[in-house]
């Protein structure tokens, strides 16, 4: 078990390294942009060239990636914070510490000052959505999987398929039209301040609804498929022919088996919710992580983007690991001896 965990941990680190390098390569393929973006559009070419030289931004890609990694683990100080650059970038934590994501050229702040706050906001939104998605998808999935092709199954299936076909911006438009414009009972934006006159809990209703609508149907479909397969297994017949009632067969024998395969799918939704909420956050002007990623990519804020990538990939690999561990817990057949 210890060996397995160590193995997985190494794999996780490797995945994160590869992912961060890929993002670095895509964003920094053309060198020199850091200087321009740090100095802003009004700096002269001379100033840009000077800074570029100082930051050694013309070094080969791998060398620059190595330097970024060095800053991250606290092996070398962040070159942007060097007073000689004249940028006056100052991180209160110092220039050299473990977990230094560098300086955000977009926000002119240390990345660590921006990103965690945004991540927290998104975590609340995602957490609320996840809390609704789990029971909804299980109920829908189990009920429609009970009797494949029955009236209930067909109704629920059509609902699920329809909902998964509605992207967040479309459901945002539909819901805002309904509940903000035609029947104004909810706010159309969610800036998480009470300035607009709406209490903060109200501001969560529509964003969460949009996320749940798009996502739960997909998970429910997965659970349905698994449930159908389980209901056809001979051990369900064994349970029925023992004289058990349908309810006891489902709760005692079918449910746990039916959740084995979709368990990973369910956990993967955490990934989607953390970083896939760009659209929802944009529609409702929600100050979250997804929007940060979008803004950083559009601006070319490599430090923020790298930090965001590392965090999303870290969340992804951790949920994958949790998924595997949960899988083992649910299914005694694959427990590591």
């Amino acid at each position: 078990m210890v060996k397995f965990l160590l193995n997985r941990l190494a794999m996780m680190l490797l995945t994160m390294l590869c992912a961060s390098f890929l993002v670095f390569a895509v964003c920094e393929y053309t060198p020199g942009s850091v200087a321009r973006k740090s100095l802003g559009p009004f700096a002269t070419q001379q100033q840009v060239d000077l800074l570029t030289a100082k930051l050694k931004a013309n070094d080969p890609l791998v060398v620059r990636y190595g330097r970024w990694l060095g800053v991250l683990v606290g092996a070398i100080p962040d070159p942007l914070q060097d007073p000689s650059t004249g940028l006056n970038f100052k991180d209160p934590r110092g220039a050299q510490y473990f977990g230094n994501f560098g300086y955000s050229t977009l926000n002119k702040l240390p990345v660590n000052d921006v990103i965690w706050n945004r991540l927290g906001n998104t975590a609340i939104l995602a957490g609320l959505a996840f809390l609704l998605i789990v029971p909804l998808s299980i109920i829908f999935g189990i009920l429609s999987g009970l009797k494949e092709g029955g009236a209930l199954d067909r109704t629920l299936s059509v609902i699920c398929i329809t909902f998964t076909s509605i992207p967040e911006f479309a459901s945002g438009v539909f819901l805002v039209t309904l509940f903000v414009i035609l029947w104004p009972i909810l706010p159309g934006t969610s800036p998480l301040t009470s300035d607009g006159g709406w209490a903060i809990p109200y501001q969560f209703v529509l964003p969460v609804a949009v996320l749940v609508i798009y996502d739960f149907g997909y998970v429910a479909r997965m659970i349905r498929v698994s449930m159908i397969a389980v209901m056809e297994r001979p051990y369900i017949r064994t349970a029925v022919l023992k004289g058990m009632s349908t309810r006891r067969v489902i709760l005692g024998h079918a449910l746990r088996n039916a959740m084995i395969a979709p368990f990973t799918v369910l956990l993967l939704q955490i990934n989607f919710l953390i970083s896939g909420v760009v659209v929802t956050e944009l529609v409702f002007a929600y100050p979250g992580f997804g929007r940060l990623i979008l803004e950083a990519s559009l601006f070319g804020d490599i430090s923020t983007l790298e930090a965001a990538t590392l965090i999303t990939v870290a969340i992804a690999v951790v949920t994958q690991l949790l998924g595997d561990l949960g899988y083992m817990l649910l299914d005694p057949r694959i427990r590591v001896r």
């Binding site: 001979p234 051990y235 746990r256 088996n257 005694p332």
Partner: peptide, 28 residues
């Protein structure tokens, strides 16, 4: 009725199946 059948199944008529591996619930 379902209720009458439940009282007979497993109690008065029981069954042994062809493939014992699949007849047993793997997670219990």
């Amino acid at each position: 009725s379902a209720r009458e059948l439940r009282e007979i199944r497993g109690r008065q008529i029981a069954m042994v199946y062809q493939d014992p591996m699949s007849a047993l619930n793997p997670v219990k």
